[in-house]
């Protein structure tokens, strides 16, 4: 009854989010003194299952034709059946679209409680508490789940992967579930937009250039830099107005309002007009030659230097660190 179940979609593979969920699950199971069960939904993904098997105590692969592609009602049914069997104390999911969609409903079906976007899990005196950011990042709440199981979707990338591993490699069990022919909703078309055109609003990291860049050429350098850290490149109004970068990538009061994890402002002074667009950024950093530039008032860290000197060096250093 102190077991932990983690639910992952096979399609996503063994990405950083999956690693975070597995790590969090392993540690929570340890704290609770229970076993760690992993459920993977969708077409068997050998790499994922092998990786999980090295950490979890049991792995269940729900690979059947109905689940080959995500369908909300079917997947929910499958998860409810599997978790119901396992009767865990906690169910952990990632914060992808599908997990977020299903978690509250799964909790309801299991008679449990759900909470989302967890950034820290606390198991104490038999109760499970979750820390999460609320009020648009202005506060952090600690929430105690009253019902069991505790269904939690995690801000998965914020959790460390497991480092220890389990003593033995678990076997991967294939299941066959009896799924209803649920056709009340059905995904009939899906489209992945290429990352090159990903929405600025969704970007995890944004590198943005301003009037101080002095021309369009510098944006090519920023793009190179962005490639190294998986960032999107954006621009201030002044830069867009000067025609150095397309207006659809303008950030600010009159442009896009973005909420990246990191916003690196290059040669942007930080007029309030601009700051209005990045008030939800979690970390703001700046490269600016002027120590009095208002942008530094909003920064967690920054460097007072000419961007022309910084960018080539930074590219070099980032490339080295990423290896």
């Amino acid at each position: 009854m102190n077991d932990v179940a983690i639910c992952l979609f096979a399609e996503s593979g063994y990405d950083r989010a999956a690693q975070g969920v597995i790590g969090a699950g392993r540690r929570l199971a340890g704290t609770l003194g229970g076993r760690l069960h992993a459920i993977t939904i969708g077409t068997h993904n050998p790499e994922l299952n092998v990786r999980i098997a090295a950490v979890a105590d049991s792995v269940i692969s729900a690979d059947q034709v109905e689940l080959a592609e995500y369908q909300p009602e079917l997947c929910l049914d499958a998860l409810a059946q599997l978790c119901g069997e396992l009767a865990p104390k906690a169910v952990l999911l990632s914060n992808d679209t599908y997990s977020q969609e299903l978690a509250p409903r799964l909790a309801h079906k299991l008679g449990g409680s759900a909470v989302g976007d967890g950034i820290e899990l606390i198991a104490q005196d038999g109760a499970i508490r979750v820390k999460r950011s609320v009020y648009g990042g202005k506060a952090v709440a600690t929430i105690e789940l009253k019902r069991s199981p505790a269904v939690i979707w995690l801000r998965a990338r914020a959790f460390e992967a497991d480092s220890a591993g389990s003593a033995s490699v678990a076997t991967v069990r294939q299941t066959r579930l009896n799924l209803p022919s649920g056709d009340r909703t059905r995904i009939i078309e899906r489209k992945a937009e290429s990352t090159g055109e990903a929405r600025l609003e969704d970007a995890r990291v944004i590198i943005s250039g301003g009037r101080g860049l002095g021309g369009p050429e510098a944006f090519k350098d920023l793009q190179e830099l962005a490639g190294l850290v998986g960032a999107q490149v954006a621009a201030s109004r002044a830069a867009c107005d000067s025609g150095w970068y397309p207006p659809s990538w303008q950030v600010g009061q009159t442009g896009k309002k973005v909420a990246p994890g990191l916003y690196l402002a290059v040669a942007i002074r930080g007029a309030s007009q601009h700051m209005a667009g990045i008030s939800d950024a979690k970390v703001i950093a700046a490269i600016n030659i002027d120590p009095d530039a208002p942008i530094f008032k909003h920064c967690q860290f920054g460097i007072v230097e000419d961007y022309k000197k910084v960018i080539p060096l930074l590219r070099e250093k980032l490339a080295a660190l990423q290896k």
Partner: peptide, 26 residues
């Protein structure tokens, strides 16, 4: 704002890169 430290420009940028990587990894 924590201005990155370092005696030389190279050191400063090195520290900057460290911070950037730290944040993006988290």
């Amino acid at each position: 704002c924590q201005f990155v430290s370092g005696d030389t420009l190279e050191q400063k940028v090195e520290n900057l890169a460290q911070r950037v990587i730290e944040v993006t990894r988290s």
